[in-house]
Amino acid sequence: MRENLGLAIFESLGYIDPEYIEQAANSRGGERSTLRRTVRLLLIAAALLSLLTAAACASAWFGLGARLISLGGQGEAGAGEGESYVSLSGLQGSPEFLAAGQWLEFKNSYEQKMVEGQLAEGESLYDWRDLERGFARENEYDLAVSRIYGVWDEAMLKELKDIAGEYGLSLHTRAGRPESGELEGTVYENGAYKYGFMLPLHDSYNLVTVYYEPWGTLPAMSLPIYAPGEYEQWEYETDLGARVDIALRRQPIDVPENYEPSPGELSWDCLIFCRGDGADLTLRCSWSGEPAPQNTAEDIADALDFKALLEDGSISAVAGAIKEK
């Protein structure tokens, strides 16, 4: 029972790499008593929890820091020289996060390798891709996932399926366009969606894109991010009572040396994260000319009913979730 309690503590922490749990569970010396093992597990859990909490305070653990996928980097906000992406489903250590990172890493490096090969042969860069997907035509499922995940040959298909299997995740099998709306979007069979719309704000409109991803499936969408270490991050409770994490970055512009741009010349990139019971919601918005961008970011957060979106879980809820501010 106590052993199970120790393991239960580990598992309930939720965001710990499964490997830690495995190691703790397997730490069985032949001469160690059950009691000592349980105490040891609890001590490890407490130590890890304190470390995690410290890290959370230092880098907004549940915000961008916990969702940053750095290819070729150390996985922390601001670290790594490679490309960076925002995890649209799951925080660091979760199956969705790890699988997405692995898939992006593979996809990018594989495509680069193939293109370089083509270049070396003097061939067209992307001729290696089977645009008709003959490798997947025999199987409806393979064809569907190949189309959705941008898979162009058998090697990519195998890797995709292996990664999903390793982390116990489903793959999207159907992607469609929203039934209505003024901007482009994509809707998946499990309700996941990406949707762009104009959010009314202060007698004007901001173009925002919202990503909704239920857990348990490898996201097909990716959200690249540049210079993650330059984002200011903070937690915020919206007017409608949703707890969100905001990340805001001033985007560089070309100006002469020693020139201090006016507020109207600045542009900002904002990410807002919200977790629900079984799904993640990510909002991205960019704007320029705002002298108080932190206020704008919070106003954007207040202008959308994140709770309603997470409870409803469908793209049709977006229109009703917009609160004029």
Binding site: G176, R177, P178, E179, L183, E184
Partner: peptide
């Protein structure tokens, strides 16, 4: 949907409602 007709979003896969 408005996106149905644009070249850069033409519905080649026939998914639009």
């Amino acid at each position: 949907p408005s996106t149905h007709y644009a070249q850069s979003s033409w519905d080649y896969a026939g998914r639009d409602t």
